[in-house]
Write a protein that binds this DNA or RNA. Structure first.
Lengths: 333, 333
DNA sequence: TTGTATGCGTTATCAG
DNA sequence: CTGATAACGCATACAA
């Protein structure tokens, strides 16, 4: 592994001092045009590339952010990451990216790594299991601003950028009600995610708006087990007064639910209307597709998340807005 | 932005020397157990985190790799990146990730940024337009090994990890032939990608294997224009002897082709068999789904790519294997 | 207009 | 067992 060219190398070859070369390269005022030209040319020839590690040691800014997400397997995160990286690049920032696979201890370890890397800011979407976010204190204490995206913590107020899930589910349910549904089931999300509660709240709000009765039997909470959705759908469909529509926390649940119905209850699958969060590009091609999907644009969400973090990184005064809500859009298939 | 705790801070507070503290923390031989304990405890209390920028300045290894891909919009890259990050993390490496959006000049700029970041190695999937990869010389010259993945350059031999597309398409076509097809169309990939040629070669090989005649009219090359696939499918179906099966370079082409048939030629859509590269999780739910999809597992491909790069980063002697082919698997829907 | 000295946080070498 | 000291590559205040 050969060494790469340094300022010192250039200086020696030019018979100049290191600082002279440094200044010439950054056209610091007070360097002769001739010298600048000589220096520039040699730098070019020798393929000189400044060492960021050294620069960062001197200066404060690193122009690097960390992004922690649960798992890229969920395409929503892929598209959000796309928005983040795009916006970051436009602002000259690099992104160091990593996945927790929903494991809180991995999450803590990764944050440690991020700190070692001296990122300027952190964008994080916590795991389903994360119940304590005190790592925020440590990060903020050493001057690394933290912005949550997609999933925000329940145990503290935070800077965050999330989908406006409340209005999103309210809209979805309202649509179902207008379509004539009165028995609407809800497959809700994990308890530890505040997001789950917000979407549930939107569901309740829409029922209330239209003075529909709430029935606890229609609300189920799937677990990660493979057959969880199957079992819950069976329970729902065995009710005396089964639902005519199903509203889900996430598109994967929708697909599982539809799949269950096709396999075990195919006579009743087509009258059943499905709406869920999560609108993926491929969804429109799907067989027995859901009636509609609702969600925020993941790219926008990522872009906005970077922007909020960026504000916090550049200005010492805190931005006024601490929470950004990305509006949801409903796509009817 | 408050400063974070440094070795010097700890040393002062403990009344020790900086180097002593440094050694204690890294249990360097020759430090009293008692001192080690004291140092450790204070470091813990003060939330000491070593500054990697400084460490990297001293040492050679950065434990950081760069990953450059075209666009995360293609889920294949998302899943490959997932494999890369996972494997990298398991080996204590961080990954800096960025997208070219298929723009060669962006690609060059991003590589420059990677060098500044002093990555230890680069994993790159070039753009469709990239015809010169001389950036490899610059990188290798300063000791940064480069491994291509998914897409390898045409203008030079390279270390790369790719899907075994030749065998993949051969297998796919053979399957179609066994199923009775004699007129098999091919929507091929962009000329500049060697991958396109390899898949085309596999197609030709399979025809040859079974002594089927080659018909140039059955091979089309879509352009990025939105209606390109539509037009080509129209041409194909207007032939006197139209194809009974379509083999595509990429699943997006398959979906477009199927979509065209549904919209404009619905009577003939179901007899037509589609097979293409790219096997995405959602594909199995799709209406008028392709007969089958063939591809390498993107996660594995990413993992292998990191492994090859890793070998190159740690050992000064070059690994024997320069090209890794990930076997393709055919999924029949 | 250019050069010198100092420090960023860490590790390594050497001396005590 | 522990402490100075130099060095990594660069930027900057200051001296020339």
């Amino acid at each position: 592994m050969r060494r790469s060219v340094t300022l010192k190398d250039l200086a020696k070859e030019l018979g100049l001092s290191v600082s002279g070369v440094s200044k010439a390269l950054r056209n610091d005022p007070g360097i002769g045009d001739a010298t600048v030209a000589r220096v520039r040319q040699l730098a070019e020839e020798r393929n000189y590339v400044p060492n960021l590690a050294a620069i960062h040691l001197k200066q404060k800014r690193n122009f690097k952010i960390g992004v922690i997400i649960p798992d890229l397997f969920d395409q929503f995160y892929g598209l959000a990451l796309r928005g983040i990286e795009d916006t970051a690049a436009r602002n000259q920032y690099s992104v160091v990216f990593t996945q927790t696979h929903e494991q809180p201890d991995r999450e803590r370890a990764l944050i440690e790594t991020m700190i070692r890397n001296r990122i300027d800011g952190l964008l994080i979407s916590i795991t389903t299991q994360t119940d304590q976010t005190d790592f925020v204190d440590q990060l903020e204490a050493i001057g690394i601003p933290v912005v949550f995206f997609v999933r925000a913590p329940r145990d503290r107020p935070s800077y965050n950028v999330t989908a406006d899930s409340f209005e999103g589910s309210r809209e979805a349910i309202t649509y179902l009600i207008r379509k004539g549904h009165r028995r609407i089931a809800h497959l809700r999300g994990p308890t530890l995610l505040s997001l789950s509660q917000v979407r549930y709240d939107g569901y309740l709000q829409a029922l209330y708006d239209h003075q529909l009765p709430f029935d606890a039997n229609l609300v189920k909470q799937p677990t990660p087990e493979p057959d969880s959705v199957d079992n819950l759908m069976r329970e729902l469909m065995q009710l005396n007064d089964p639902p005519t529509a199903v509203f889900t926390f996430k598109n994967y649940l929708t697909l599982d639910a539809i799949s269950y119905m096709q396999r075990n209850d195919s006579a009743r699958v087509s009258p059943l209307d499905f709406i869920g969060f999560g609108n993926l590009p491929l969804l429109k091609h799907i067989d027995y597709r859901p009636l509609a999907a609702v969600d925020a644009d993941p790219f926008d969400l990522g872009a906005e998340a970077f922007d909020l973090l960026h504000q916090r990184m550049v200005s010492s005064s805190e931005p006024v807005i601490q929470q950004v809500k990305i509006p949801c859009q409903m796509t009817i298939y």
